[in-house]
């Protein structure tokens, strides 16, 4: 198993922490993992992305150029990464904010109105977790339990009260795929 994931969006949408959660969960399961952020003169509202590798073996290159999965949360990220997804790969789009339509036929396109659904849950900032829940349900590269365990580490004790809403969002994302409503 070798998953090479790119997660991209505006700074503040939680793309970096989504990647860290996957990497952390992979580590807890004894897998080889790496997390590499795009970094530069970034600012809140600018675009940001991270590359995550999860493998049964120690990770070779942490740099991902042809992802098996790309998760995009805004239009610039859609434009940048749609063509990069490996043939047969997965492309998850936050269609609340992305106005483009994915039309590649050789990859699996999943469109989720994640920001709208997050608002329904009462916290627009968990849109990332809805997308992550769908991604986990589709790929099953790490278990939901490992992600929840990682969430405690990534959030830290003073944000434990946010675990519940994050959990709801993860489950919401997963349920969308289980019910095949998308």
């Amino acid at each position: 198993m070798l998953e090479e994931i790119i997660i991209a969006g505006f700074g503040g949408q939680g793309v970096m922490s989504m990647g860290q959660l996957i990497a952390y969960a992979g580590m807890l399961e004894g897998k080889g993992v790496s997390w590499l952020p795009s970094y530069g003169p970034e600012q809140r509202g600018g675009t940001a992305n991270c590359a995550v590798v999860v493998s049964d073996e120690p990770v070779g290159s942490p740099l991902v150029t042809k992802p098996t999965t790309a998760i995009v949360l805004n239009n610039p990220s859609f434009d940048k990464f749609e063509s990069k997804v490996r043939s047969g790969g997965l492309f998850i789009v936050n269609s609340s904010l992305v106005t483009r339509t994915a039309d590649r036929k050789d990859i699996t396109n999943i469109e989720i109105k994640a920001t709208d659904l997050a608002n329904e849950l009462g916290n627009s900032r968990v849109a990332n977790m809805i997308l992550l829940g769908a991604f986990l349900e589709y790929t099953k590269i790490v278990t939901m339990d490992s992600i929840l365990e990682s969430l405690k580490k990534v959030l830290g004790p003073d944000k434990y009260h946010l675990i519940e809403v994050n959990k709801q969002a993860l489950e919401k994302g997963a349920s969308l795929l289980m019910e095949k409503t998308i």
Partner: peptide
């Protein structure tokens, strides 16, 4: 290099 400094690994 910057990549080694910025990346995360176990």
């Amino acid at each position: 290099d910057g990549m080694l400094g910025q990346m995360m690994e176990p």
